[in-house]
Write a protein that binds this DNA or RNA. Sequence first.
DNA 1: CTTAAATTTCAGTAATTACTGAAATAACTG
DNA 2: CAGTTATTTCAGTAATTACTGAAATTTAAG
Lengths: 173, 173
Amino acid sequence: MQLTPTMQRCILHWGEMAGRWGISRSVAQIHALLFLSPAPLTAEDIVGTLEIARSNVSVSLKELQGWDLVSITHVLGDRRDYFQARKDIWEVLTTIVDGRKRREIDPTLAMLRECAAEAKQDSETPTEVKERVASMLEFIEELSGWYDQVRAMPRPTLLKLMRMGSRVAKMVS
Amino acid sequence: MQLTPTMQRCILHWGEMAGRWGISRSVAQIHALLFLSPAPLTAEDIVGTLEIARSNVSVSLKELQGWDLVSITHVLGDRRDYFQARKDIWEVLTTIVDGRKRREIDPTLAMLRECAAEAKQDSETPTEVKERVASMLEFIEELSGWYDQVRAMPRPTLLKLMRMGSRVAKMVS
DNA sequence: CTTAAATTTCAGTAATTACTGAAATAACTG
DNA sequence: CAGTTATTTCAGTAATTACTGAAATTTAAG
């Protein structure tokens, strides 16, 4: 897997963005490489292309599989694992958002629910603070519920709605 | 500013989430504290409450101001700066998303545009890769444009639309 | 079952990022 | 303007996170 300058640029940029979103550079680079690659790659291919340690590739691939962004395939007569990334960009996005919702939003919601419950028999926390916790909880719950509904729509519907842009507002005005 | 257990829990949780989104713990904790706090706080108040170095508070506050999430106020007869966070949760969210779009999405779009242009007089990059770059560019541009339109809607409209959930789909079906 | 290839684990280390504290600067007061 | 308080800067260090390489494990072929 020889990288052309264009591919290299995409992969490096992806790696740089990773840090800003709390993702390790290797994971992001491997994901970018597999996303661009026309064919599935072996772990060794990745080592050769990105020049990172074999063990790092192994761990990063496991993480990408944990995110459900990468899967394993096999080639007849070859016992090595071949890795491929989801290619449908829309799916890539929803998969990532679903994952972050589950790993970060849901636990935060749980925490806020507990805090809100706790706040009821808690006389020391100022009323204003309690209200803010409550409104935060309500807000995230509402957004979360909205996301679940949108997520369940058939994609063509969603696409049409998206392409309407702000014209959907005519419905409610 | 004495923290009650409930407040402490919120602040600590916020700090823990921060790392996963590429934000430093101190910045997140300070933001959480100011968000919860009924009244504006001085830098020293924050030092006392969160037990972090004065200099760290200073730098973190600058960052939060850079994100437009925190602003300075003053108290008559007191020359210290008092800091307050945006309290409207909806605004907090849009401010953060706007910021991340500007800092991360826009540069990525620029990179993709350049790659797509570059790809035209580039014979070595495989056609499939070029297509993937192009489709990615198109996808992010579309999403980005959609966000701008939604962002420009009046908030009551947006709220109504949101509360309709998947019922908006009736428009296009 | 033995051997070899592929993969994973994990302790140690490197790289990065976050934080501190001392010193400098800025902003005000009398 | 000298003195005081508030704030910022930044070099050094601590803490965290990412990565490597050697060893162990798994998997399959002969």
